[in-house]
């Protein structure tokens, strides 16, 4: 056993009257009381009027972002839906008859993209797993709604809240690279 038993010093009679504890408590409380009342040293932040500065890397609400040309970046790969621990994300893939993607060479974008902000735990797994840099945890922390339905954010809302993020512009470079090559010797039907 590596436990070390520390002998406690027995309390003196004075200590056992509880007086030092009472006086100590009085001293501490009186100091803080005086500081708050007379010196105005309060730590309270008057929330709706005063707001804290959201630090970099804060994990707020996840929103979808658009690329530099305003196109939807999400390609509906559904990895975020898969990885989402509370199953807050629900993606409806475009399917064979879906609307063509905003970026022609990315081929695919979600028909619908829903995040249930009531289920979301702001863990950031979706952002981490996203291969397209299309979803980011942003700085919103105060998300309110009047009913459960209004807390399910759809694709349109997520895109409008998410803003723009250019990133590595994979699809743009791919297109440029393809266009720079001599036309391919097989005609596409």
């Amino acid at each position: 056993m590596s436990t070390k038993v520390v002998d406690r010093a027995p309390l003196t009679f004075y200590e056992r009257t509880y007086l030092p504890a009472i006086l100590g408590g009085l001293k501490v409380t009186a100091k803080h009381f005086a500081d708050t009342v007379f010196k105005g040293k309060s730590v309270t932040m008057q929330y709706p009027e005063e707001r804290w500065v959201v630090p970099e890397g804060y994990r707020g609400a996840p929103y979808l972002v658009k690329d530099q040309d305003g196109a939807t970046k999400c390609v509906s790969c559904q990895l975020c839906e898969f990885v989402c621990p509370p199953k807050a994300i629900r993606i409806t893939p475009p399917g064979p008859e879906g609307r063509p993607a905003d970026r022609a060479n990315a081929e695919k974008m979600p028909r619908e993209f829903e995040i249930n902000m009531l289920r979301c735990i702001f863990c950031g797994m979706c952002q981490e797993v996203c291969p397209e840099e299309a979803i980011f945890l942003q700085k919103d922390y105060s998300i309110t709604g009047e009913n459960r339905e209004s807390m399910i954010f759809n694709k349109e809302k997520l895109l409008s809240l998410g803003g723009t993020h250019a990133g590595i512009q994979k699809w743009k470079h791919k297109l440029e690279e393809a266009q720079a090559q001599e036309s391919f010797p097989v005609e596409t039907p």
Partner: peptide, 9 residues
Amino acid sequence: FRFKMRVWF
């Protein structure tokens, strides 16, 4: 099946 559902689901 094109773009209909990811197979892992």
